[in-house]
Simulated assay, not measured.
Amino acid sequence: MSMSDSLLRIEDLRTVFRSSNGDIAAVDGVTLEVPRGKTLGIVGESGCGKSMLSLSIMGLVPRPGRIAQGRVLLEEQDLASLSPAGMRAVRGAEIAMIFQEPMTSLNPVHSIGDQLTEAMRAHDAKASKAELKERAIEALRRVRIPSPERRFSEYPHQLSGGMRQRVMIAMALSCKPRLLIADEPTTALDVTVQAQILDLLRDLQAETGMSVILITHDLGVVAEMADEVAVMYAGRVVERGTAKDIFEDPQHPYTIGLLGSIPRIEEDRDRLLSIDGSVPPPFAFPKGCRFNPRCPFAIRACTEIDPPLRELSPGHRAACIRAPVELALDIAA
C-alpha cells in the first residue's frame, strides 16, 4: 500500500517499559498501514499488545513506558516525534479514541454536557458557551441518544452501559477526527446493544469518511466490520491481510487457533478447538518464534528462528517458517 493510500502508517514501532532488568518491549517492531476511509481490525488475546499499540499511537503511553524506536506517520507528520503540546493539538482533532470501559473513562462528578463541551473547547477556544452546548446536543443526537437535551445535563451513572458508550463515541467524534481508534468498543455490552453500537460506527464512518482502527478479541466483530486485519501476538503482528485472507486462508498457527475456537452452526463438534497455555509476559518471551511453546505445528527450527513477516500472496503476510502450508486442513483433521 502506498503512502497516498494510507492515512496512518506505523513503521517498526517499539514501545518499552524500563525495569530493573532493562527495557521490556510491550510493542515490538510493529509495522502497519491504515487505509483511508477503511477499517483495520487488530485482534489477539489479552496481553498481546493491542491496547498498548493504540496508546502509542495516541501518545498516551503510561510511565515509565516510552516509544524507543519507529515512526507513527499521520500522512507526513510523525506523531512519535511531537512534543506533548504538539500531540495534544492532534489528539481529538485529528485522531480520537474510544476506550474500553466508558464508566471508567467518563468522570462521574461532571455532567455529560460538561465533558462533551470540554473536549470541544480544547480545540475551539473561541466558541461561546451557547454554541458549544448546541454542538454537544447535536453530537448526542448524531449518535442516536434519545432526548439529547435532557441527557446533556445528566451524569454518567444515570445512563445505561450502551448509552455511556454512545456518549464516548459522541465525544470522540465531536471535533471530526480523520482517524477513530475503537478499543474494545462493545466490551461488557449485551448482544443487542453491541449490534447497535457496531451499526452506529459503520453508519458514522460512511457519513464522515473517517478511517477506523478496531481493536478487539472478538473475531465475529472483526468479520462484520473490518476491511483489513492484523493479528497480534506477544507484542508483534504475526499475520496481516484482508478480512477475506484471514478468515478464508489463515496461515499462522495462532490465527488458525483463534478461528478454530469460534463455534460454527454448520459444524457438528463435541468441543471447540483451544490454544493451550497463555500469552507469555514481555519479560519472558521464548527464544525463536514467540508462539512456538503453544504451537501444535512447531518443529525444532521454530525454537531457533525468529520469523519475520513474509508475503505469501499480494497483501497477505505471515510470520511462520512453515507457511504457506495447509495448516488449516491439518488442524481441522
Rank of each mutant, 00 (worst) to 15 (best):
160 S>A: 04
215 I>T: 08
214 L>M: 14
287 K>N: 13
199 D>K: 15
282 P>L: 04
229 V>F: 01
201 L>W: 03
223 A>N: 07
174 S>F: 02
240 R>E: 03
228 E>S: 10
226 A>Q: 08
243 A>V: 15
173 L>T: 03
275 I>F: 13
267 E>P: 00
172 A>R: 15
164 R>P: 03
175 C>T: 07
210 M>T: 07
168 M>G: 09
165 Q>N: 06
194 Q>C: 13
205 Q>P: 05
278 S>F: 09
276 D>K: 15
167 V>S: 06
197 I>H: 11
204 L>K: 07
230 A>S: 11
216 T>C: 07
161 G>Y: 06
171 M>A: 13
210 M>H: 07
225 M>S: 09
201 L>C: 06
227 D>T: 09
249 D>L: 15
201 L>M: 13
197 I>V: 10
255 T>D: 02
192 T>K: 15
254 Y>I: 10
274 S>I: 12
272 L>I: 12
249 D>E: 15
180 L>H: 05
240 R>N: 00
241 G>C: 06
160 S>Q: 05
178 R>W: 03
198 L>Y: 10
211 S>K: 00
281 P>M: 12
274 S>P: 02
280 P>N: 01
207 E>Y: 04
162 G>Y: 14
237 V>R: 01
223 A>K: 09
210 M>K: 02
188 A>W: 08
222 V>F: 07
187 T>H: 05
262 I>V: 14
281 P>H: 10
230 A>T: 10
163 M>T: 00
276 D>T: 15
265 I>P: 00
235 G>W: 12
278 S>Q: 13
157 H>D: 02
214 L>G: 08
262 I>F: 14
236 R>H: 09
161 G>H: 05
161 G>L: 04
225 M>H: 10
198 L>Q: 02
200 L>I: 01
257 G>A: 10
211 S>Y: 00
257 G>H: 05
156 P>C: 10
252 H>R: 01
225 M>Q: 13
158 Q>W: 04
201 L>E: 03
235 G>L: 13
179 L>R: 05
171 M>K: 15
243 A>D: 08
286 P>I: 01
183 D>H: 14
277 G>R: 04
208 T>C: 00
218 D>Q: 10
207 E>K: 06
257 G>I: 02
210 M>L: 15
234 A>Y: 04
267 E>M: 11
257 G>M: 04
272 L>T: 11
161 G>D: 06
157 H>C: 03
287 K>G: 11
266 E>S: 09
272 L>M: 14
230 A>G: 10
172 A>V: 09
169 I>W: 03
266 E>Y: 06
